[in-house]
Amino acid sequence: MGAGAVGCYYGGLLARAGHSVTLIGRQQHVDAVRERGLLLETDAGRETVPMAAAMNMSGAAGAELVLVCVKSDDTEDVGRALLAHLSPDATLLSMQNGVDNAERMTAVVGREVVPVAVYVATEMAGPGHVKHNGRGDLIIGRRPASETIAAAFTAAGIPTTISANAIDALWGKLILNCAYNALSAVTQLPYGRLMNVAGVEAVMTDLVKECTAVATASGITIPADCLQSVLALAEAMPEQFSSTAQDLSRGRASEIDHLNGFIVRRGEALNVPTPVNRVLHTLVKAMESKVQPTV
């Protein structure tokens, strides 16, 4: 559900491994997949993976597993729309940015949604064409179905770890996103070139300190090497643009309210100052106002 870069990449790997997969997404992608299959581009080359595609929620009917890959703003709406089509025993995975999507969707669908921390660099290179730029591993919450899911994902080439502390992992991913997404969007630079700009490392250091303070005040355990892991991402994915940068370049609303904006709101509630996050959140919102139609 949500056949963007993340949904297409993991859907493509699962379909390639022999699973029956349906992508639910926008018309241009659905039409392309129906016509020729999904074009999956990785370091190993390009291949076309046949699979089903749909533009409405009925594509989820009968599914044993639903990978929810939509933007955080759409979580509740998608949950309500899926309700009429979900099998009683279907498992839902929240493979989204942010830390509270699984909780928000659980409240809507009336069943526990499994949180998943997704570590992958992907982009849509054209209709029905997904390009993989790095990583691809997952950390999924420990639930009754998690062992079966992890085994199927691992067999499909998706490194998957089960954790009782998936929320802590999601906070770690949130901090990573807060460090890179807004800066890549404002500068329209990929991570490698971004880190070569004077002062960026110092800004990221301040961002991580703010996010870690908010996480700690929220009762979340953040690894001591969090900053080093954040700074190392640019070397691992030097050509990657953040999802926020990609959204703005295509004239779409971003998830910044659920990234730096979330840190700002949580910081206010906990009396933890977040001035750097506030500035970057405000800058991205200002950029969104240039490309989004006013109401």
Results as ranks from 00 to 15, higher is better:
Gly128Asn: 07
His129Gln: 11
His129Leu: 14
Gly134Cys: 09
Gly134Phe: 10
Arg135Thr: 04
Arg135Tyr: 10
Arg135Gly: 02
Gly136Trp: 03
Asp137Ser: 14
Leu138Asp: 04
Leu138Pro: 01
Ile139Lys: 05
Ile140Pro: 00
Gly141Val: 01
Gly141His: 03
Gly141Ile: 02
Pro144Gln: 12
Ala145Ile: 01
Ala145His: 05
Ser146Tyr: 09
Ile149Cys: 04
Ile149Glu: 02
Ala151Arg: 15
Ala151Val: 11
Ala151His: 10
Ala152Phe: 00
Ala152Asp: 05
Phe153Glu: 01
Phe153Leu: 14
Thr154Gln: 12
Thr154Lys: 08
Ala156Trp: 02
Ala156Thr: 02
Gly157Phe: 04
Gly157Ala: 10
Gly157Leu: 07
Thr160Lys: 03
Thr161Val: 14
Ser163Pro: 03
Ser163Arg: 09
Ala164Phe: 00
Ala164Glu: 15
Asn165Thr: 14
Ile167Arg: 11
Ala169Lys: 07
Ala169Val: 04
Leu170Ser: 06
Trp171Leu: 09
Leu174Ser: 04
Leu176Thr: 11
Asn177Trp: 02
Cys178Trp: 00
Cys178Gly: 10
Ala179Asn: 07
Ala179Pro: 01
Leu183Trp: 05
Leu183Val: 05
Thr187Cys: 11
Leu189Thr: 11
Pro190Phe: 10
Tyr191Gly: 01
Val197Asp: 01
Gly199Gln: 11
Met204Ala: 02
Met204Tyr: 03
Thr205Ala: 12
Glu210Leu: 10
Glu210Arg: 06
Glu210Ile: 11
Cys211Gln: 08
Ala213Phe: 02
Val214Lys: 02
Val214Gly: 05
Thr216Met: 07
Ala217Phe: 04
Ser218Gly: 11
Ser218Gln: 08
Ile220Gln: 12
Ile220Gly: 03
Thr221Met: 05
Pro223Asp: 09
Pro223Tyr: 08
Ala224Ser: 14
Asp225His: 11
Leu227Thr: 00
Leu231Arg: 06
Leu231Ser: 08
Ala234Tyr: 02
Glu235Gln: 14
Ala236Ile: 12
